[in-house]
């Protein structure tokens, strides 16, 4: 069984941000991160952009409708 990542996360938050876990819902919210971690894991190796780093604002201007 994989170790529960929640207690180490709470300790890291306390260490880096000085913020204590405020309630049980917050603890459950951290557990919800496991879903996000899986999404990120699935993305690894699938994205390769040659124009990184890039400006989002420049992309907004560049991607305008040509005829608008």
């Amino acid at each position: 069984m994989k170790p529960d990542p929640i207690p180490p996360s709470m300790e890291a938050i306390r260490l880096w941000s000085g913020v204590e876990c405020p309630n049980e819902a917050a603890r459950l919210g951290l557990a919800d991160h496991i879903g996000l971690l899986k999404e990120l894991e699935a993305l690894r190796g699938t994205l390769a952009f040659e124009d990184e780093p890039s400006s989002f604002e420049a992309a907004l201007r560049a991607e305008q409708e040509k005829e608008a």
Binding site: V19, E20, C21, P22, A26
Partner: peptide, 18 residues
């Protein structure tokens, strides 16, 4: 002032730190 937030907000904000 974490106790001055509602539970749902402090819990959501907490999720941003890690």
């Amino acid at each position: 002032r974490a106790a001055d937030y509602s539970i749902h907000l402090s819990s959501r904000l907490y999720g941003g730190y890690p």
